[in-house]
């Protein structure tokens, strides 16, 4: 999977008398690759475009500019058959386990829907497959005929995962799959995702704002800020030696579950995340960056490659070797 210079602009039209057009650059010129069998995490705060990017990759949205390639074919130019095949191989799991399952459908129909849509096997075999999937994600098969509201958030998320796995996909987009869950349930789902990845050789694009979760699950991490990639690198390397100041501050903002670290040296970023409607010129992070200098306000840093790392900063943090 590969995307090139992907851009998605949303045009927000003011309704009524004063119709003024604002362009929201939700995803602005992003290129990245997802390799087979890896977990690539997209990390960033709200409004950084990580969810939009996920939806562009799975073709729930069409890009304003740029292309997405899946196994070397451009998904924008696929014919009907190609799209069908693509839909089978790439699936998505959503954040909100309450909104992502149709409340009027029974679990069996929810999980069976992908099989039904692609006419895979007969009804009886489909139901058997549903039972297998339910066992796989840890939902008792007696619950097949229940409705989603009879389940807790974690169980619903399991149902969502079963549904996504029904077509034996290769790539799974996980859009904040655990952020709505309780802590004890969160770790269950994370472990389930890890187990499934091993078992089915899945590739994950894991979208999250929770850095600790990302550290646990991913192989590579891509940090986004206001529609741009600021840093990419392997999980361990990136967390231990961040190159971009934003990555560092993001990490230092996370409250650690140990009061001994309470008085650790931390930098708390000032100000709010700028609006993606009118991003600051130059480096988009310069308004909040304590290291910003003159050039940061004028020139936008390009994504630079450094070994297996990439970063977009004029003054990257020293790398301790």
């Amino acid at each position: 999977m590969e995307c090139e210079n992907l851009k998605k602009y949303f045009v927000a039209t003011g309704k009524g008398m004063k119709s003024k057009k604002d362009v929201v650059r939700a995803v602005d010129d992003i290129s990245l690759e997802i390799y087979k069998n890896e977990t690539l995490a997209l990390v960033g705060e709200s409004g950084c475009g990580k969810s939009t990017l996920g939806r562009l990759i799975i073709k729930l949205l069409d890009p304003t500019e740029g292309e997405v390639y899946y196994k070397e074919s451009n998904i924008a130019t696929l014919n009907k058959e190609g799209i069908n095949k693509f839909r089978k191989q790439v699936q998505i799991i959503f954040q909100d386990p309450y909104a992502s399952l149709n409340p009027r459908m029974k679990v069996v129909d929810l999980i069976r829907e992908p099989l039904r849509t692609h006419n895979i096997a007969k009804k009886k075999e489909q139901i058997e497959k549903v039972a297998d999937l339910m066992n796989l994600v840890g939902i008792r098969t007696e619950y097949m005929t229940r409705y989603p509201h009879q389940f807790s958030g974690g169980q619903r998320q399991r149902i969502g995962i079963a549904r996504a796995l029904a077509l034996n996909p290769e790539l799974l987009i996980c859009d904040e799959p655990v952020s709505a869950l309780d802590v004890s349930i969160q770790s269950q789902i994370l472990n389930l995702l890890k187990k499934l990845q091993e078992k089915f050789n899945l590739t994950y694009l894991f979208i999250s704002h929770d850095l600790a979760v990302v550290r646990y699950i991913s192989d590579r991490v891509c940090v986004m800020f206001l529609g741009k990639i600021v840093e990419v690198g392997s999980c361990k390397d990136l967390f231990e030696h961040p190159l971009h100041p934003y990555t560092k501050f993001l990490m230092s903002a996370v409250p650690l579950p140990d009061p001994k670290f309470r008085d650790r040296d931390r930098v708390i970023l000032e100000g709010d995340i700028p609006s993606p409607i009118n991003p600051p010129p130059g480096c988009r992070f310069h308004t909040r960056c304590p290291y910003a200098r003159g050039i940061c306000q004028q020139e936008e840093p390009q994504l630079v490659e450094l070994g297996d790392r990439k970063y977009a900063c004029h003054f990257p943090l020293e790398r301790v070797i």
Partner: peptide, 19 residues
């Protein structure tokens, strides 16, 4: 159950069952 930001986590502990 909480992953640690500053450590590689091999496997996360699970509390079994539901809330």
């Amino acid at each position: 159950s909480i992953p640690n930001l500053h450590k590689d986590n091999e496997s996360l502990y699970n509390i079994k069952g539901l809330v």
